[in-house]
Amino acid sequence: MRDFSYLRADSVEAARNAAALPGAMLLAGGTTLVDLAKCGVAEPATVIDISHIAGLDAIDVGPDRAVIGALAKMSHVADHPQVKSHFPAVSEALWQAASAQLRNMATIGGNLMQRTRCPYFRDPQNFPACNKRAPGSGCSAIGGVTRGHAVLGTSEACIATYPGDLAIALVAFEAEVDLGERKLKVEDFFLAPGATAEQEHDIRPGEVITAIEIPGSAAARRSTYLKVRDRQSYEFAAASAAVGLELEGDGRTIRDIRVALGGVATKPWRARAVEEALKGKPLDEATVRKASELAMAGAVDHGANHYKIALAPRVIARAILELGETA
C-alpha cells in the first residue's frame, strides 16, 4: 500500500474542505478504502478520517420517514427496532450483507460509495485494462470469466456488477442521499457506466454524504429483501430483490408494489416495468411470475452470467409471493 498523509476532520465543514484537496479520499469505516489501497486500486494522496465527527451517526426513524446519519454503522441500523418495523427490507438487506465485523465498521454513507467487486477491477497488476480504473484502457472482463458480472445496465466500456445490498432497498423505497448543498434520489446518485465507467456516483470534489432519508410508506412497512447467493452467508448476491407490497382492502388486489434488483446490474436497479404490470392486478402466482419476467427486458449476458437472466425473475417472484403470504 502506498503511503498517504492523514488528516482527521472533526466537523462536516472541515471534511468538505479537506475533501476538495487533490488526491483526497474520505475514510469512514475503511472497509472499502483500506481494502482497495491494499489492492493498489485506490492510491489516495491524503486520507481524511471523518469517523470522529460527532453526531453524524444518529438514526431517527418514524412511520413517515427515516433519517440515517452517514456515519451510522450498518449493524446499528440493521438492529434498530424501528427500522425493523417500518423498513424491514432495509434491515434485512443490511444484516445479509458482509459479516458481523464488517457491519460494525462500515457506515451507511460509506456503503453507498462501495466499489464493485469485479475481480479485474481489483487486480491492476495482472489486468491493467479496466475502464473504471484507467479510462480508455479497455475492459478485461468482456471476454473473461463473467459469472459474477452484470446483465443489465452494461456498456461496451464496463460490465461490472454493483455489489451492494442496502442501496437496492433504498432505490425501491425512493430514498434520497443528502450531500449538504443538494439532495438527490439514491437511484440518480448511482451512474450506469455508459462511456464513463470511472464515474460511479454523482458526487463532486468537496461533497460529503451527511445522511440518507427514506420516506415511509405502506409498501416499505410490508417489505423484504431476498438474497440468493453461492453460499448461504457472507457472500455477494447472485441475484437479489427488494420488494414492498401494499394490498387493497380485499386482501388480494395489489395497490402499490416496489421492486428493485441487486447482483445483476451495474447499479441498483429499479424494476418499474414489473411494478406497473402488477398494480391493480390480483396477487396470484401466474400473474406475479409473468410480470417478473419483464425485469429482464434488454438484458445482455456475457456467457457465464447467462444464468442470472433466468434466476432474477424467480427471485423477484419468490420475494413477492412470500411477502403476500405474510399478514
Binding site: 492523514y6 482527521r8 475514510l27 475503511g30 472497509t31 483500506v34 481494502d35 491494499k38 489492492c39 486520507v47 478520517d49 469517523s51 470522529h52 449493524s75 459479516s99 458481523a100 465485523q101 464488517l102 460494525n104 465498521m105
Partner: peptide
C-alpha cells in the same frame, strides 16, 4: 487474508468486534 475476508484478526473496538486488518491504527486513537 489481510483483506477483510477471514476474520482471524478480529478484535474489539469500544466493545464491538471489528477487523484489525482493515482498520488504520490512526483511526482508533481514543
Amino acid at each position: 487474508c489481510d483483506q477483510g475476508q477471514c476474520g482471524a484478526c478480529t478484535v474489539h473496538v469500544d466493545g464491538e468486534r471489528v477487523l484489525a486488518c482493515l482498520t488504520l491504527a490512526a483511526q482508533v486513537e481514543g
